[in-house]
């Protein structure tokens, strides 16, 4: 708890000289939710892919502290080890469930895949764990043999969460997890996410352009513009007392409800 789980320094991946992710530094602490906000094209999704090892940086350092407390420099880690980390220490929730689920494999199979990927070979155990995770994300366990192809968007997103959390990852990356959902479904999902994050004490990096989502979930915020972090701080401080011109603009554009 006394050390960041992820420490990024001057991480750069430039698509053009002023596009991509430019010299970003950040720390993620165990159990905290770090929000990354900014408009489309500001580099927030690129940053997420870099930090989660899905894309490699041109320069900079990304240090991850694994379960055993061993520091791992992700930029120098071979793909095999990165993929293993991806299955054990990380979770990745994609905006589009189609990118994060196997739509023609049953819900139970989707959840069980990571367990089987780390060597679980007991059908009964896998099924029991899958059932309990369905309950955890508020999907009727009777749907365990249903294919996500026939699930609603909200259910697909819940299944994606279960599929990721089943191996107790310590750091979860979320890219606009409520992106394509109806407002009412969004609220329910956010509530589930908030509860799980709190109960499991996992660290989360969440990319969103929805300030409401950021306010509800994130402890801290980074505001990105044109590939750079232009403001950061406590979520309510950044949103209530924004300093940078761009952040003020972002906050001013939130629809006021009530």
């Amino acid at each position: 708890m006394d050390k960041p789980i992820l420490t990024a320094r001057e991480v750069t991946r430039a698509y053009t000289p002023d596009q991509g992710c430019l010299g970003v530094s950040l720390d993620v602490w165990p159990g905290e939710v770090l929000g990354i906000v900014g408009e489309s094209g500001s580099g927030k999704s690129t940053l997420l892919r870099l930090l989660s090892g899905q894309e490699s940086a041109d320069s900079g350092s990304i240090l991850f502290l694994d379960r055993a407390g061993t520091p791992i420099e992700l930029t120098e880690t071979p793909e095999s080890a990165l993929r293993y980390l991806g299955r054990t220490e990380f979770g990745i929730i994609h905006q589009n469930p189609r990118d994060g689920l196997r739509l023609r494999i049953s819900a139970g199979g989707n959840i069980g895949e990571r367990l089987m990927g780390v060597g679980n070979r007991h059908y009964g155990d896998i099924r029991a764990i899958a059932e309990s995770w369905l309950t955890e994300v508020e999907i009727d366990p009777a749907r365990i043999d249903g294919k996500p192809l026939h699930f609603s968007g909200g259910m697909q997103q819940r299944l994606q969460i279960a599929r990721n959390l089943v191996t107790n990852p310590r750091l979860v990356f979320m890219d606009e997890p409520t992106g394509g959902l109806d407002v009412s479904v969004q609220a329910k999902l956010l509530d589930t996410l908030k509860r799980l994050v709190h109960d499991l004490g996992i660290a989360v990096i969440i990319v969103t352009h929805d300030m409401g989502v950021a306010r509800l979930l994130a402890d801290r915020l980074l505001v990105m513009k044109q590939g750079r972090v232009i403001e950061s701080g406590l979520t309510d401080q950044v949103l209530d007392d924004p300093h940078a011109a761009y952040t003020q603009q972002l906050v001013a554009s939130i629809l006021q409800v009530n």
């Binding site: 609220a187 908030k194 306010r215 509800l216 402890d219 406590l234 401080q237």
Partner: peptide
Amino acid sequence: HPHQVLELRRHTLGFVSQFLRVIPRV
């Protein structure tokens, strides 16, 4: 650092305001 502020809010600082920020479903 933001973490120090959060820690203070957890144990030391309480804020009572006029407005409740409603959290859906809770």
